[in-house]
Design a protein around this nucleic acid. Structure first.
Lengths: 186, 186
DNA sequence: TATTGTTATACTCTATAACTATA
DNA sequence: TATAGTTATAGAGTATAACAATA
């Protein structure tokens, strides 16, 4: 009863909680801010950013999906929203007739320019005004490396299978399996 | 045209992107994993974790909401889902008749124990197997500090007002305001 | 008056899988 | 066969504001 060893996983889960919550709090705030300032959700704004970054060349749909945490159909939906607002234009790719290239429109670019300063400011005020530049670089190096690794393999639309079958929600009777004590955190 | 100085904000936005994307990728994977293994979304599982951690005392709804990125009504909805599955039980608070305390049920505890190992493993494999323990501690210290600060003031259900009025989406004509060049990132 | 929590409505988004078309 | 993208549909989740009750 009760777990004595601080155990590695406790450290890890605190680290994960810090990452998780910090990221979510800022994302939430950015979402509210962007809805107010430019009428887009954070998800939409991030997509528009990706497309805008590509300049006049535009960007393939799959490319965009891979650079974000969005499914194909989810991206189709969101780009559809952007297109309805005339911030984006889809055109067939010249080299591969299966592909579609999304281009940013002048209106879209305008909106991007209107939204970016506030977005940058918000992230700075919430995150970076509380960090030394050294810490900033440290975190970036570490996380950027992890991110790069994570983006390599999963190839999007694949996901880890469960490693452990469990009661499918309602099966209220089966011997307690894994952990043995009330205190969570392990 | 084109932005010469790498500018602080470019560094910052890369740091933010690393945090943002890493967190999202892992959250997405954890969500899929938990749906498979215990039939809960990550959001629901996190709520159940909060309630489970509190043990027999249970936990006030507001308390839970404040420890997460959920609105009051959103929490009511999600706890309602958990209650329908009999993983949680709500009872009026003895000391404050406005408050409601959520308790975990034996079934809920069982499910928590079934789900935690896989969750911990996933986070470890995706995140911490790619980090030295020193880096782990560094990131935790830095982010934990930021998180603590962020959680103090915003007091939940408040949010920053937009700092800059902008075209409400469809106003396709007004002089380009803020930034001056195509390349985004500033 | 401020807080706690719930409800109601409308809407947005997501999951899933089927489907078309090209490589 | 595999990849690119869309569609359809059902369901889950969210935003907003109004509401009741207690502090």
């Amino acid at each position: 009863m009760g777990i004595p060893e601080p155990s590695i996983s406790a450290d890890e889960m605190r680290a994960w909680a810090a990452l998780f919550e910090t990221s979510n709090i800022v994302q939430y705030a950015a979402d509210r801010n962007l809805r107010d300032s430019v009428g887009l959700t954070l998800a939409q704004f991030e997509i528009l950013l990706r497309i805008g970054e590509a300049g006049t060349d535009g960007r393939r749909m799959t490319d965009i999906a891979d650079s974000l945490t969005v499914s194909r159909s989810g991206l189709t939906y969101q780009v559809g929203q952007l297109e309805r607002k005339e911030l984006v234009l889809r055109q067939p790719a010249p080299d591969d007739d299966r592909s579609v290239i999304a281009h940013i429109t002048p209106t879209g670019l305008e909106l991007l320019r209107a939204g970016i300063p506030g977005y940058v400011d918000l992230v700075r005020e919430m995150l970076f005004d509380r960090l030394s530049h050294a810490d900033l670089m440290t975190v970036t190096e570490i996380l950027d490396d992890v991110r790069r690794q994570l983006k390599e393999q999963p190839k999007r639309s694949t996901y880890r299978r469960a490693r452990r079958a469990a009661a499918p929600v309602g099966t209220g009777a089966d011997a307690g399996p894994a952990a043995g004590a009330v205190p969570i955190a392990e």
